[in-house]
Design a protein around this nucleic acid. Structure first.
Length: 606
RNA sequence: GGAGGCGUAGUUCAGUUGGUUUAGAACGCUGGCCUGUCACGCCAGAGGUCGAGGGUUCGAGUCCCUUCGUCUCCGCCA
């Protein structure tokens, strides 16, 4: 039988059903084991691996040929499928009960010894992790590894599942430009200098925000796009300079409509990889999230919600607490469940109170163990009455065997933030996060404005509709208390998406711009086209964007989003594979009318 | 932009207070042997600018300074 595209079978396709069949397989040599007169190959393709047997007794020439094989050679093999004898079954392999007795072997391509082992058969048992920089330099080899294949294939399934969901719901896939104008998100733009328009630049989109709203004005009613977005900011493990969003927008909708679609999308994404996530998602208002979890992206997989003990300790004998409580500050805490025995005084006092809380931005931490018989243990328990301690216990929902922790500060916001970070730190450090659990929630009612150096600014973007319309003559305090029709979707403490119902009334939009202290000129220059578009008949509309990289990373449980992106940039936004960014010819710069401020020699010579 | 960690063989790492001629291990690689392995086994071998530059010292992989690369946290950023 001659190997062809049509009769080739993948390793995973071949099962015990194929015993005695003659089959053709093609792929990479994962490993070889030469026993003298008998040689085994693990052949790897996209679907999995299959053991090939080259037996000198059956085919002397083929056995000889098989001895020349090395890791990562590309071969095709024709032969007969056979059951393995019971004692040679490999239960750790999907195809471990069968093997292919080779009759013909063709080397399609030889391979140099790779810089790191592609086969994961040995490496996973040695717990060997190759440096990420080397992986990225040889990404094409890294992507051959089974784990990475699973990730990239899993990502494809997730995106397809979401596309299917939206296609069935009547959404249209419409592309928007990459070469565009700076959009109103707060990050730095990637700029693309124009050759045909001297001294002018395009900006790569930070998101398709304005375009998708204009598509609503154009009457497409339901839009989506798997959109690449660009932000020139410093990176983090879950942040890339270019990242992918599932962007969607719909007309004549309210929050519930967008949320329903989104939940079905996320559900489909999880299902595509055999997982379930409970719907409908919980709802929590921004202010409540901050007050009970200390974060606008609360991790609801575990409890440890905050209790306020400011009033409880107002008259207590512990000076730090009563002075802060009486000076308008706040004291809050939570109960770490069941760790009273496990956490030594030394650990609590030196480690958590001495170091960890500082790393969370706090000045200090007070801890108390909840013992039997309404008793408490800590280094400062003598400063409190039993009534105060019992009331505190009640406030944080403390049970016998718990450790209560409290943070006090002059500012409530600081207490919340510090406690919020500390809650996550404690949960991670002491393994309080249940495995395999997915908990999603909507965070809503974000503030419309925040105050920066005395000036109102938008925490989201300025096209978000206020919950109640703004009107002339509102005081700054009133304005700061206003909320928006924005919503974030959070899974396991990670924000995976967000959106809002937009302003579709040009007068309301103008009012918001005015409050943000944007001048007519600025508005005209930055998004005059958009303001103009609003005035020609705009349907009520809203939408949302899901960070695909993060969502995929959560579903596939990878340590970093880089593991679910085929060709990511490294920590410093550099591509070790292509060595981009790089210097370009002076002639190219001349075309663009650009001159380096720092001479190249100076940068290289350093 | 700030703080910290790391950089030793192809890979992952060890290397004591600065002191043993030739800087080690495992895996990988090369050659040989081996008929049922699957992290095959056995024997032999090759492989190093200790990131780079400077300094201290009788002596530096080890200490100091500079620099480059990379990672983590903060700033920044939906």
């Amino acid at each position: 039988m001659k190997f062809t595209w049509n009769n080739r079978q993948t390793c995973a396709e071949i099962t015990e059903q194929n015993v005695n069949d003659t089959v053709c397989v093609a792929g990479w040599v994962d490993t070889t084991r030469d026993h003298g007169h008998l040689l085994f190959i693990h052949l790897r393709d996209r679907s999995g691996t299959l053991q090939i047997v080259c037996d000198e007794n059956k085919n002397q020439g083929l056995y000889k040929q098989s001895k020349t094989l090395r890791s990562e050679f590309v071969v095709n093999v024709t032969g007969t499928i056979q059951m393995r004898s019971p004692e040679t079954i490999n239960s750790s392999m999907n195809s471990g009960t069968i093997e292919l007795i080779a009759e013909e072997l063709e080397i399609l391509s030889e391979a140099k010894t790779p810089p790191f082992m592609v086969s994961e058969k040995a490496t996973e048992k040695m717990d060997l992790t190759v440096d990420e920089d080397i992986r990225l330099t040889y990404r094409y080899l890294d992507l051959r590894r089974q784990t990475m294949q699973r990730n990239i294939i899993g990502r494809s399934k997730i995106i397809n599942a979401m596309r299917d969901t939206l296609n069935h719901a009547g959404f249209l896939d419409i592309e928007t430009p990459f070469l565009t104008k700076s959009t109103p998100e707060g990050a730095r733009d990637y700029l693309v200098p124009s050759r045909t328009h001297k001294n002018k630049c395009f900006a790569l989109p930070q998101s398709p925000q304005l375009f998708k709203q204009m598509l609503m004005m154009s009457g497409f009613e339901r839009y989506y796009q798997v959109a690449r977005c660009f932000r020139d900011e410093d990176l983090r493990p879950n942040r890339q300079p270019e990242f992918t969003q599932l962007d969607l927008e719909a007309s004549f909708v309210n929050e519930t409509d967008v949320m329903t679609v989104t939940e079905s999308l996320i559900q489909a994404a999880f299902a595509s990889n055999g997982l379930t996530i409970e719907t409908p998602f919980k709802h929590i208002k921004y202010q409540d999230a901050m007050n009970t979890y200390g974060s606008d992206a609360p991790d609801c997989r575990y409890d440890m919600t905050f209790g306020d003990v400011t009033e409880t300790f107002k008259n207590c004998g512990y000076k730090i607490f009563n002075s802060i409580a009486n000076a308008g500050g706040a004291i809050k805490g939570f109960a770490i469940p069941g760790l009273a025995n496990e956490l030594s005084k030394n650990m609590l006092q030196n480690d958590l109170a001495g170091k960890s809380i500082q790393s969370c931005g706090g000045k200090g931490l007070t801890w108390m163990k909840v013992l039997d018989n309404n008793e408490f243990e800590s280094n400062i328990v003598q400063f409190f009455t039993n009534e105060e301690l019992m009331a505190a216990r009640e406030a944080v929902n403390g049970n016998v065997g718990d450790v209560m922790v409290f943070v006090a500060d002059g500012s409530l916001a600081t207490v919340n933030e510090v406690l919020g970070r500390f809650r996550v730190l404690v949960a991670e450090r002491f393994n309080l996060i249940p495995e395999g659990v997915y908990s999603a929630c909507w965070v809503t009612d974000f503030p419309l404005f925040e105050l920066n150096d005395g000036q109102l600014t938008s925490p989201h973007h300025p096209f978000t509709q206020p919950t109640e319309p703004v009107h002339d003559g509102m005081s700054q305090e009133q304005l700061l208390n206003m909320t928006t029709r924005a919503y974030d979707v959070v899974i396991n403490g990670q924000e995976v998406g967000g959106g809002s119902i937009r302003i579709h009334d040009s007068k309301q939009q103008a009012m918001i711009f005015k409050l943000l202290n944007l001048s007519e000129d600025e508005i005209e220059q930055k998004f005059g086209f958009f303001v103009d578009a609003l005035t020609y008949g705009t349907p009520p509309h809203g939408g949302l964007a899901i960070g695909i990289d993060r969502l995929v990373s959560i579903i596939l449980n990878t340590p970093s989003i880089r593991d679910v992106i085929a060709f990511p940039k490294n920590r410093v936004a550099y591509c070790p594979l292509t060595k981009a960014p790089s210097l370009v010819d002076e002639a190219q710069l001349d075309d663009l009318n650009i001159q380096h401020k720092t001479p190249i020699e100076e940068l290289i010579g350093g």
